[in-house]
Amino acid sequence: MLDAIEVTKQFGAKRALDNVSLSVLPGEIYCLLGANGAGKTTLVNLFLNFLQPTSGSLQIGKLDVVRQPLETKRLLAYIPEQVTLYGVLSGLENLAFFSSIAIGEHLPRQRLLELLEAAGLPRQAADDRVATYSKGMRQKVGIAIALAKNAKALLLDEPTSGLDPSAANEFSELLVKASNDGVTVLTTTHDLFHAKQTGTRIGIMKQGRLVEELRSEEVSHADLEALYLQHMKS
């Protein structure tokens, strides 16, 4: 569903991604691990066509990301690390705006409220201005947007960083539920525990290369940690 084929991305002299190939199948949750600057976020940006690859290609559901940017984005939902919304609008209004751009039609208020509820936003907060929201609340609006879009693939950038443990757990549950519904998930994270817990597959990146790929049920938590540290050291 999400395919990167021999992707290289060069920023001036610096090679951010070096011949990375990766394929996430429908229903999978793929967790990308790696230090800061390893190229995880660059890969996500390439899938979003926020950046264009220096060489290689990326596909979402067999559509080329660069050549068909709008079509691929219809299949895709993205939740950044910091979900930033329009502060002067309420959560509901933000959701209404983004969802109408995403699916090209206005959803009824009742449906929007249901989506927010499914994402876990308290009902009474829906009409408050987003400027008053916490980070977690904003992220829930982000999830609601993704839900509204009924996306086939989900791109997440450090989704659990900065969330308290219970919120992070809630989030993981949502991911698992989505993948059970057949949604493909690609998420970057620093959190080995969550990667092991929720991911079906785990990739480790280092200096722009994908150095390790494994199935999470194949390794124990301790093995994963050892393996990760070993890669980071060498």
Binding site: N49, A77, L85, L155
Partner: peptide
Amino acid sequence: EHGTLRLLCSQPLS
């Protein structure tokens, strides 16, 4: 600068 551009551009919107 506000950060909304990323979310906007992840939508089917040029």
